[in-house]
Design a protein around this nucleic acid. Structure first.
Lengths: 254, 254
DNA sequence: GCTTGACCTTGACGCAGCGTCAACCCTGCA
DNA sequence: TGCAGGGTTGACGCTGCGTCAAGGTCAAGC
């Protein structure tokens, strides 16, 4: 007759595991001796080893029971099924590896590759990291709402960045962030913005934008994100309003 | 301002997940409206999406926090570490697949390949499945106690099975199992066993066996397993005792 | 003003497979 | 007789939420 630790020893498992198998009904509770100790026979060793063999092969404990009593045909079927699950789990983990390796390089954290490329262009142009991060967060929101439209949006953004005035605008904004926004510093920025928006409107781009971003609530949300992140945005919005423009992420004539 | 389900909707997660992130401190609890509802801003959407991006790449939630605030170097290091864990996990599952595929064919359930081959020879000789299973369980025990000695044991067993008298013995035992063990039926079986044991002893095999199986407690356990599994064993042991032999899995002269 | 249905709240169990205390009893040996 | 090293039950912990339960809230239609 064996004690629980002897049983566990023969089968190469922990005492705790044996008790767990009792709890879940995989291994029947044996009889007890006078002082309440469990006493096992050799049949328990055999059963325990068979349980472990299956468990170590990745069979969920919940299915071990049925497998121990299965006919060869049932057994083969169940094994095939479990193997399928194992394969699925492996594929899932491999997918995780793929994603995590892509995360390893920079902004692809949560933004599509096109956006990450655009952000890198901003950095290359000397625009501050704070500004880039603001832009990135804005695009995280955009990508959450209109993932399928990101490529076309980015084509436009890249085209804009080809215009040196746009780069200059970003740098001026950076300057305002760092040195504060006096009226004198604000004026040229607002002038530049209005100038470019007029051109943009003339090319019909703003109408296109209004078409693409038809979700007032969401646009309001993104705008509030911008205004929340820095008071400068509200100052600029006020100045632009004087010039007949409203909005921020989606500009429109008042 | 957003409700929890709107927030969850934008980020593509469940409401429950958002609350879970609050619980574990990944997402700060937002302010509440008059009736206790949580109200979120766009910044929460951004943070939530960044959390999900990492989580979906297999980053444990417990590490997401540190990764969100990490420098590129720290980030790369952490990612490498997580990738290592993912690889280990994948290898583990692949090992499971290997083992389970081996289980698919028959007795390799918990017995080494040599034993499985021996059992198949028994089947081929026409020995009943009940007998084979008894033998298998015995060898499960033996393999648990002396895994390294199984190959040599099996060489001997296979040699024995080459003797037609051994096959005949098994078949006679089968017969006793099915038709009951009258004295008349028992006699030839006992004669045959004694005959072969004498020869075996003459070749010095029994001494070798006693050498190999030096663990009286364990041998007693295996014997009790045999006697427990069928009353026939005890009957045979009684008859063998009359002829000067004791034991079962390890036979010795009285 | 009332019902209805969709949402919101907190609280708590469930899952897989044990690891790991805690608190206490039993046994064998010096 | 005292102590070390067994045994016993009970319960929390870990991962990442899913899923009730038992209510309060809000917007809409009657």
């Amino acid at each position: 007759m064996l004690t629980i630790s002897q049983l566990a020893g023969y089968a190469g498992v922990t005492v705790r595991a044996v008790r767990h198998y009792h709890q879940v009904g995989l291994l029947p509770e044996p009889s007890r001796d006078g002082s309440g100790y469990r006493t096992y026979d050799a049949a328990a060793v055999v059963r325990l080893i068979r349980i472990r063999t299956l468990a170590e092969a990745g069979v969920p404990l919940a299915r071990v029971q049925e497998l121990l009593g299965a006919s060869p045909a049932e057994f083969a079927e169940a094994v095939a099924e479990i193997d399928t699950e194992l394969r699925a789990r492996i594929r899932e983990l491999q997918e995780h590896r793929r994603r995590i390796s892509r995360l390893a390089d920079g902004d692809s954290l949560a933004v599509p590759a096109e956006v990450a490329a655009y952000l890198d262009r901003m950095r290359a142009a000397g625009i501050s990291e704070a500004m880039v991060e603001g832009e990135r967060d804005g695009w995280i929101l955009m990508a959450a709402r209109w993932p399928e439209k990101i490529p076309e949006f980015m084509v436009d953004k890249n085209a804009q960045l080809d215009d040196p005035r746009v780069v200059r605008l970003y740098l001026l904004l950076d300057d305002l962030l760092v040195h504060g926004a006096s009226d004198a510093r604000l004026d040229p920025v607002v002038d530049l913005m209005v100038e470019m928006m007029e051109e943009s409107a003339a090319r019909g781009e703003l109408e296109q934008q209004s078409e693409d971003m038809r979700d007032d609530a969401f646009v309001g949300l993104v705008d509030s994100f911008a205004t929340d992140s820095h008071p400068l945005v509200e100052q600029l919005q006020a100045r632009l309003a004087e010039r007949g423009w409203t909005g921020w992420s989606r500009m429109e004539r008042a």
